[in-house]
Structure formats: structure tokens, C-alpha cells
Design a protein around this nucleic acid. Structure first.
Lengths: 112, 112
DNA sequence: CATTTTATCGACATTATCGTATTAAATAAA
DNA sequence: TTTATTTAATACGATAATGTCGATAAAATG
């Protein structure tokens, strides 16, 4: 393939990172995503996706330093890049246009 | 797997069918989708997706009758089912909530 | 060195996409 | 009125990308 659009899961992961701002890493993203979408995901799914998004240039990451907590490996923090923001805007736009193109009658039936 | 959410492409195909109403079949869906999204797709992609959406219960289909045109096979017309409408509403809702959860500062940077 | 927290790996299922083949209908030719 | 030919559309088979897990390895600190 070649396209490299934003997959459906990739999109909500990306949005979740944007919501979390400075605090976005594997665990928080998993929790926030579950909280906001009601969808349960193992965090290895999140990690894989985070990694792919970084490869695509939609996210950047840096390793965090030591913390005051009990133990645990260092966190890898993520941030949405300019390209990531653009991608989000674009898919949003396209979908809004599609919804806007629905005949009002159909829309009535669908949303009421 | 098991989930059977709506894939990203599946979603816009479904929306396109909704937009077209009575006139939705392989060719028109392809054209309308390209027109509305600016994305080029071979129509075998559309057919495959249409079929999957039907298997998932988000679309129903019926064969059309003879036409007045030169030649050509009968068309298979598609229509969004109640389940399809529900699925569309749900993904829309989730995304809107995610966008709404963005810190206003972030939103500023992203959309301006 | 044991425990805790998180990240990385490897594997498999589902979706996205394409190219090509096949089918069906409508008319032209024989 | 059969048989070709043309045209419009769908079905099929194959491969790449994305979605999801479970298991394993790393770092940090008591």
C-alpha cells in the first residue's frame, strides 16, 4: 500500500494524546481512552499504535526521567506533531462535509 | 478479533451510501466518494467494502431491474440499515466528545 | 535481589486496496 | 431467432497496512 491515512484507532489514540498534553504516555493514554470512549484495550495495542504514529510522523516522543514513585521503568512521553495536527484536522473536515451532504430527510431519520 | 467496529474507510463508504439514498451502487458510490473526499479509489475497493458492510449488517442490498441503457449488468443497490445508522451516530459522537475534551489552548493551536 | 511500573517484541486477525476475471444484459449481425 | 459483440457492473484472489494480544525484557527503587 502507500496511502498512509489515519486508521480509525490511530485517530482516537492521536486525539487522546492531544487531550493529555504533557502527560501522555502508554498508561495514561490507555486510561484516558477507555474513560472517554468506553472501549477497553490492552495497552500493548496502545503502544503499538503509538509507535506506528511516530513512524508516520504524527507523534514525537522523549524518555522521561526518574520519578518519586516506588519503582518502574522510565516513561516514554508522546506529543502530537504539526503533521499530526494537520492529519486530525483533515479527517475531521472530510467527515463534517460528508455529514453536511446528507439529505435533510435522511438526517432526520438518523439523528432525529 | 471480534470487535467489528467501523474501519476508517468503511465509515466514509457508509456515509456516502447514506448521501446517495436510492441511487447507491458500486459506480455511483465510487464517484461520489471521490468527489466529496478528493480521494481516488479503484471501484473494486468500494465493492469489497460494500460487501463487508453488508456482512456486518450495516448495509442491505437488492438487485435493480433492467434499464434503458445500451448494455450492462444489473446494478446492486445498497441502503444503510438501522444498525448502520446507529454505528455512524456512535463514532461521530465519540469523536465529538474527544474534540470537546481538548484543552482550549491546544485547540487554538490546532484549528486557530 | 524482589517487586513494581512501563516499554518492546513477535504473532495473528481484520481491513484497505488493487488488478484481473467473470457475469449479465442489450443490441447488432448472420 | 441464434450467435457475437459491446458495455456496465460485480466477483475473486492476492498483498499491504492496521488493529489487538500475550509474553518478555528493562529500568527503578526498597
Amino acid at each position: 500500500m502507500k496511502r498512509t491515512f489515519l486508521g480509525e484507532f490511530e485517530e482516537i489514540v492521536l486525539l487522546t494524546v492531544a487531550i493529555l498534553g504533557e502527560e501522555a504516555y502508554g498508561v495514561t493514554v490507555t486510561q484516558e481512552l477507555e474513560k472517554k470512549t468506553g472501549r477497553t484495550v490492552g495497552f500493548s495495542s496502545i503502544h503499538t499504535t503509538l509507535q506506528r504514529l511516530e513512524e508516520k510522523g504524527f507523534l514525537s516522543s522523549r524518555m522521561g526521567g526518574a520519578t518519586t514513585e516506588r519503582g518502574g521503568r522510565r516513561k516514554r512521553f508522546f506529543a502530537v506533531t504539526a503533521a499530526g495536527q494537520k492529519a486530525l484536522r483533515e479527517v475531521k473536515q472530510v467527515r463534517e462535509e460528508l455529514w453536511a451532504a446528507l439529505p435533510s430527510q435522511t438526517l432526520q431519520l438518523m439523528v432525529g
